[in-house]
Design a protein around this nucleic acid. Sequence first.
DNA 1: CATAGATAGTTTAGATGTCAATAATATATT
DNA 2: AATATATTATTGACATCTAAACTATCTATG
Lengths: 162, 162
Amino acid sequence: MDLEARLHADHGEELRLWLRMLTCTQLIEQRVRSRLREQFETTLPRFDLMAQLERVPQGLKMNELSRRLMVTGGNVTGITDQLEAEGMVQRVPVQGDRRALLIRLTSTGRKAFAEMAHQHEVWIAEALGGLSPREVDTLYTLLGKLKQHVARVQNESIGESA
Amino acid sequence: MDLEARLHADHGEELRLWLRMLTCTQLIEQRVRSRLREQFETTLPRFDLMAQLERVPQGLKMNELSRRLMVTGGNVTGITDQLEAEGMVQRVPVQGDRRALLIRLTSTGRKAFAEMAHQHEVWIAEALGGLSPREVDTLYTLLGKLKQHVARVQNESIGESA
DNA sequence: CATAGATAGTTTAGATGTCAATAATATATT
DNA sequence: AATATATTATTGACATCTAAACTATCTATG
């Protein structure tokens, strides 16, 4: 009973941290969403997809995009459809695999993204501006540790089920 | 140019931190979502709504729920509809204001939530288990600072536009 | 009291997200 | 070669989310 009470209390600390993490990310995300809409008439998922493509000039396959964005393939299909209709990206057949498609930024897309990316960086810097460089670094390090742990636990439980 | 380059680099630190925060929350959130679905056949938004109600036995008005969950009123209406259909919550008229409704957990809802909440706490503790108590505390403090800053900037920009 | 504006909740249209099923193609195995 | 299995992307059904319009009600002010 005593043990369980202490256990409960410990979990509480972690739960509080988790809820605070969620609050922070949601507050910032909502700011970014509304500014993308107001200033660029676009949305966060579209911006995120273009951001992935911008790093890889030759383009990315749908499944690779899906993995990087951490969303399902069906979702990527939908967002790609829209960006393609807007002329921001194009689907390019892959030599040697007729199932696959490379998604690439068009030159229009590259230009549009460059503007947005610059503003985006400013917004994020604004949002995180209350922290000193040292604090930013500490957070980055601790979240790196968290990320590794979560990724590891994820793989383990997949390992168990296999 | 030099200045701008340095500015760019500084923003980069913050951008990296932001992307890492997003990765962490998404990894953990997806674990929680899939477990809520597998083990309790429910969803995260429903769980979150019930979690808010659980703290306030007399119930919460729609607009208060909307504020606490940081989502739009229309969204709360939809999730409440479902939870009501499932018998987890009920809408109760408010004395003296025929516009307003109090949303309350039913006893069924309270029981269902208690089980889920316990498991949820364990999942979160698992996910954050790679951090020492001291690290949890540091993160909590730094994110508290971030939250305050973001909330303040939010209000300022609302103030500017008014 | 009358009416203007504010507030509470819902509805609608549309984007984003999931999961599961499907179609097309690739790969492996016999 | 023939067949089975795996992989790639799309589709369909549905839940979630937003923004904006709408209905009903309340409140303040003349």
